[in-house]
Measured scan of single mutants.
Amino acid sequence: MLYVKVKTEDGEELVLEVEGMTEDEIREELAKAGFKIEEIEVYEVEP
């Protein structure tokens, strides 16, 4: 499983499960949803 931890400019932290997306695609999708991203951390969790 691939997850991203996202910190927004307003200090909110989100953890999202993503599969088959690049970091650029993740940033693009979050921007479309109205999030202003300060930091993204991508990590993989073994089942």
Rank of each mutant, 00 (worst) to 15 (best):
L30H: 00
E25H: 03
I40Y: 08
E25P: 00
Y43T: 05
V4P: 00
E17S: 10
E38N: 12
V45I: 12
G11H: 02
E19Y: 14
V42P: 05
Y3D: 01
A33Q: 15
E13L: 10
G20C: 05
E41R: 09
P47Y: 09
V6A: 04
E13Q: 07
P47K: 03
L16K: 01
Y3G: 03
L2Q: 08
V18D: 00
E13F: 14
T8F: 14
V18N: 01
I40D: 01
E41H: 10
V4D: 01
D10E: 10
E13I: 14
I40Q: 01
V45C: 06
P47M: 08
V18A: 03
L30Q: 00
Y43F: 13
L2A: 06
D24W: 12
V6Q: 00
A31T: 10
M1N: 07
E41Y: 15
G34P: 03
A31L: 12
E39T: 14
E41F: 15
L30G: 01
V42I: 15
M1K: 15
E19M: 13
E25M: 07
T8E: 01
K5I: 09
G11A: 03
E13H: 09
E9C: 05
K36A: 07
Y3L: 12
D24T: 10
E28Y: 10
E41T: 11
K36C: 08
V45N: 09
V6C: 05
V45E: 08
I37F: 08
L16Q: 01
E12M: 14
A33W: 14
Y3S: 05
T22V: 02
Y3N: 04
L16M: 10
Y43C: 03
R27H: 04
G20H: 07
G20E: 03
V18S: 02
V15S: 04
V4T: 00
L14F: 14
V15I: 14
L30D: 00
T8D: 04
A31N: 07
Y3H: 09
V45A: 08
L2I: 09
G34M: 02
I26R: 00
K32Q: 08
E28N: 08
V4I: 08
E17L: 14
L16R: 02
K5S: 04
I37E: 05
L30T: 01
K7A: 04
L2H: 13
E23K: 09
Y43D: 02
M21H: 06
F35S: 01
T22M: 03
V4F: 04
E38S: 12
G20A: 07
E17Y: 15
A33R: 15
E29N: 09
F35W: 11
G11V: 01
E38V: 15
E44A: 13
Y43S: 08
K7C: 06
L30S: 00
E39L: 14
F35E: 00
E41W: 15
E41C: 08
K5R: 07
K7I: 12
M21A: 06
E25R: 06
E19W: 15
E46L: 13
G11K: 01
L30M: 06
K36S: 08
L14S: 02
E39H: 13
I40T: 02
V42T: 05
P47S: 09
V4A: 05
T22A: 03
V6N: 00
L14Y: 10
F35D: 00
V42N: 03
I26P: 00
T8S: 05
K5F: 07
E9P: 13
E28G: 06
V4S: 00
D10A: 09
A31M: 11
E13C: 15
E38A: 14
V45L: 08
F35A: 02
E19S: 14
T8N: 06
K36N: 10
A33N: 07
M21T: 09
D10R: 08
V6I: 12
E38P: 02
G34K: 02
V45S: 11
L30F: 06
E28Q: 11
E23G: 06
K7H: 09
E29T: 12
V6G: 02
M21G: 07
D24N: 12
L30R: 00
M1W: 13
E39V: 13
E38C: 07
Y3I: 14
V45W: 11
E17R: 15
I40L: 08
Y3M: 08
L16A: 01
P47N: 09
E12G: 11
G20M: 07
R27V: 07
I40K: 01
K36W: 05
R27W: 08
E46I: 12
E19F: 15
V6T: 01
E17M: 15
K7N: 04
E12P: 03
Y43H: 06
L2M: 12
I26A: 05
E9I: 14
L16V: 06
V6D: 00
M21D: 02
I26V: 08
R27C: 05
T8G: 10
E25N: 05
E39A: 13
I40V: 06
L16Y: 11
P47I: 11
E41L: 13
I37A: 07
A33F: 13
L16H: 02
E29G: 05
E41M: 11
V45P: 08
L16F: 14
V15Q: 04
M1C: 06
L30N: 00
A31Y: 10
E13T: 13
I26L: 07
E44M: 12
A31F: 10
E19V: 14
L16W: 11
D10K: 10
K36G: 04
I40M: 10
I26K: 00
G34N: 03
L30A: 02
T22S: 09
E13P: 03
E39I: 14
D24G: 09
K5M: 05
I26G: 00
R27S: 02
K32N: 07
E28K: 12
G20S: 05
E17K: 14
E46D: 13
E39P: 02
V15A: 04
V45G: 09
E46S: 10
R27M: 07
D10T: 12
T22C: 04
D10Y: 11
V6K: 00
T22F: 04
M21N: 05
P47V: 07
L2F: 14
E12H: 12
G11Y: 02
P47D: 08
M21K: 12
E28D: 07
V45D: 08
D24V: 12
M1G: 08
E23M: 15
L14K: 04
L2Y: 15
E28M: 11
E29A: 14
M1I: 13
R27G: 02
G11T: 01
L16T: 01
E41A: 10
I37Q: 07
I37P: 12
V15G: 02
E46H: 12
K5Q: 04
G20I: 06
E23S: 07
T22G: 04
G20P: 04
G34L: 02
G20D: 06
T8P: 02
K7T: 13
A33E: 05
E29S: 10
